[in-house]
Amino acid sequence: MKLPNGLTAHHVNAGETALLYRDIFVERCYMQHGITLSPGDTVFDVGANIGMASLFFHLEFAGLVFHAFEPAPVPHAALSANFATHEIAGTVTACALSDRSGTAKLSYYPNSSSMSSFHADPAAEAALMRTFLERSGFDEEDVDDMVDGRHVVQLIECPVRTLSEVIAERGVTTIDLLKIDVEKSELEVLRGLSEADWPRIRQVVAEVHDIDGTLDAFLSLLYGHGFTVALEQDELLGGTEIYEAFAVRKEL
């Protein structure tokens, strides 16, 4: 599809891609609270989906190197195509990052791919999606169509690895930005970092779900490893469990 900036993108769902474009390109949701990037920096895009975040960073900052991770096959195919089309430097990997290695079952929603999850709660997720779409200005009929489409779900066995395993395997010395959007698995991603690898992380931007103490545990890990953290909630998600965390090392 053609994006509002004139570029084309391989995608899964046009409506979903339009929402991603608005959040990432128009509202610049990742470039807040002191998050900065420079030419030559390394970005880990965890939960990359079709790669809209990577594309945004690639266009905004020259010479970045990316490591993008997306476990679901259809978004992964679009992600790979977008990296090739836009000559984004880096590696695309068909796996999830977690606190262990092995496999896990992903609940994949073909009609709402960015909300696919290893910790699916279809009823809660449908209610959350309805709230977000209604506040975004969609009419009731369109909302019903998109929410009803979430009843289509596929269980996919996906490989999972830890962040520290990837760092060691690829010889990564610094991750200048660790972007995490993994639908309730964000704490597991951080727990996949060994103590020795925490100093390699310079900045973190993450969507965090405040369920069963996850938000407090996530923030505690960041505070405990020398980050200052700003927490925000999109006005369209006010009163929900979803927050955005922006973490920068204190010495920066």
Rank of each mutant, 00 (worst) to 15 (best):
P4M: 08
N5Y: 12
G6S: 04
G6H: 11
L7I: 05
A9M: 12
H10R: 13
H10G: 07
V12Q: 15
V12C: 06
A14L: 15
A14D: 15
Y21S: 00
R22N: 12
R22M: 14
V26T: 14
E27D: 08
Y30W: 09
Y30E: 14
M31Q: 06
H33W: 07
H33E: 12
G34M: 09
T36F: 09
L37T: 07
L37D: 04
S38A: 13
S38E: 14
S38D: 07
P39V: 03
V43Q: 07
V46Y: 04
V46E: 07
A48D: 03
I50Q: 03
M52S: 06
S54I: 01
L55G: 05
F56V: 05
F56L: 10
A62K: 15
G63R: 06
G63K: 00
L64V: 06
A68Q: 09
A68F: 05
A68S: 15
F69Q: 04
F69C: 06
V74S: 04
V74I: 08
V74H: 02
P75Y: 06
H76F: 15
S80F: 09
S80W: 11
A84S: 11
H86R: 02
E87N: 15
G90R: 08
C95Q: 15
A96R: 03
R100H: 10
G102K: 13
G102W: 07
A104I: 02
S107Q: 04
S107C: 09
Y108G: 05
Y108A: 10
N111C: 08
N111F: 04
S112A: 14
S114R: 12
M115Y: 03
S116L: 10
H119D: 07
H119K: 15
D121H: 05
D121T: 09
A123S: 09
E125P: 01
A127N: 13
L128A: 03
M129V: 04
R130H: 07
R130I: 00
L133P: 01
F138G: 01
F138N: 05
D139H: 06
M146W: 14
V147G: 06
V152T: 14
Q154N: 14
L155R: 15
C158P: 04
L163W: 01
S164M: 01
V166T: 05
V166D: 07
I167A: 14
A168Y: 05
A168P: 02
R170Q: 10
V172Q: 11
V172R: 08
T173K: 11
D176I: 08
L177R: 01
L177S: 01
L178W: 04
L178I: 03
V182E: 00
V182N: 00
V182M: 00
E186L: 12
E186F: 11
E188P: 01
E188D: 14
L190M: 11
L190P: 00
L190K: 02
R191K: 15
G192I: 03
D197M: 00
P199Y: 11
V205Y: 05
V205R: 01
E207Q: 11
D212R: 14
G213L: 02
T214F: 00
S220T: 13
S220H: 11
L221M: 10
Y223E: 13
G224V: 09
G224Y: 14
H225L: 06
H225G: 04
F227H: 04
F227A: 02
L237M: 14
G238F: 11
G239S: 15
G239Q: 08
G239V: 13
T240M: 06
I242A: 08
I242K: 12
Y243T: 10
Y243L: 13
E244I: 14
A245N: 07
A247G: 03
V248E: 10
K250T: 13
E251R: 04
